[in-house]
């Protein structure tokens, strides 16, 4: 539908200017990056801001950099950037594997990783993957900069720790040697939102991170499953043991995309298939990144 409500538009060229503009319009301004969520919401009348603040003219926000084992991702990095970045494919190919499941090229050329976690829908693909790393979200607001752990980012359904007058500048992620998988249940092979998803990162020393998407109001980590896996050889028995824990770790709902029962069932299947794949990728074996496990 046509965007029924009119609004003003500003395009600041520095983060500081952007935060000042936001501070001047408390509660009535929205930040625009890729726009693939925001413009759709404007069309649906789901949001009705008086002002849209386009941050795409701000330099440096497209950066993808590696410093030691710390990966820096600017807030305008798109999913296509993740897929095409040699740095990402060398240091964190899991991000590209995840990005390839997001919508389609025409959306990925525009939609940003940071926008995905700012929209914070339960099915956001970035969530279960970023939760697999030591990820920090860096923001700037009227009172200066602030950094928070990704584990504290998702506050509720479509709610994050970012205040209305703050803008995310970038993410940093610790990317030591690791292997990961992102397994996503979709209704068919083509573009779809996740009906359920699992992100798994395996680190040396039988250390794992396990997170789920679309089975709770926010992406969720399962520290109980991580604890159960810790320091034990990953064999069939251990996998069966943690698969049996899945139902208690997630709280899926019945909706148009899937029933809770099917979501639970497939989370079990995804964990069962994903754990060995993550482990094998850590060892340099295993299926190539991008191979779909379900």
């Amino acid at each position: 539908m046509v965007i029924a409500k009119e609004f003003d538009y500003q395009r600041p060229t520095t983060l500081e200017e952007a935060t000042q503009i936001l501070a001047g319009h408390p509660g009535s301004a929205r930040v625009l990056a890729g726009g693939t969520d925001l413009v759709a919401w404007l069309r649906d009348d789901a949001v009705a801001p008086d002002l849209v603040v386009d941050i795409k003219a701000i330099p440096d926000l497209h950066d993808i950099k590696i410093d030691g084992d710390t990966l820096h991702l600017g807030s305008l990095v798109t999913f296509s950037d993740l897929i095409n970045s040699p740095i990402v494919s060398e240091h964190a190919p899991l991000l590209a594997e995840m990005a390839e499941t997001v919508a389609s090229t025409g959306i990925r050329n525009r939609a940003t990783l940071v926008g995905n976690i700012c929209s914070a829908v339960p099915s956001c693909d970035a969530g279960p993957v970023l939760l697999g790393y030591d990820t920090t979200v860096h923001m700037i607001g009227p009172d200066g900069t602030r950094s928070i752990d990704i584990n504290d980012w998702f506050v509720g359904l479509r709610e994050t720790a970012c205040a209305g007058d703050e803008i995310v500048s970038h993410l940093t992620m610790k990317v030591p040697v690791h292997g990961g998988v992102y397994v996503k249940l979709m209704r068919y092979a083509g573009e779809d939102l996740a009906q359920a998803a699992v992100g798994i990162v395996a680190y040396p020393g039988d250390e794992y991170r396990v997170a789920f998407g679309a089975v709770a109001p926010t992406p969720i980590r399962s520290t109980r499953i991580e604890d159960a896996l810790r320091s034990k050889p990953l064999d069939e028995k251990l996998i069966a043991e943690v698969v049996a824990m899945v139902a208690d770790e997630i709280s899926p709902i019945d909706d148009i995309r899937a029933t809770a029962a099917y979501r639970t069932r497939i989370c079990e299947v995804m964990l069962e298939r994903g754990l060995p794949a993550a482990r094998e990728r850590l060892d340099g074996t295993g299926p190539a990144y991008g191979t779909r496990l379900i």
Partner: peptide, 23 residues
């Protein structure tokens, strides 16, 4: 008009985008 069908695709600086989701 919500980015699902792709029939509004254009090349913007050489890359495909959904022109229905761009102001």
């Amino acid at each position: 008009e919500r980015g699902d069908c792709g029939s509004c695709t254009i090349l913007l600086d050489g890359k495909t985008v959904r022109s229905c989701l761009v102001l």
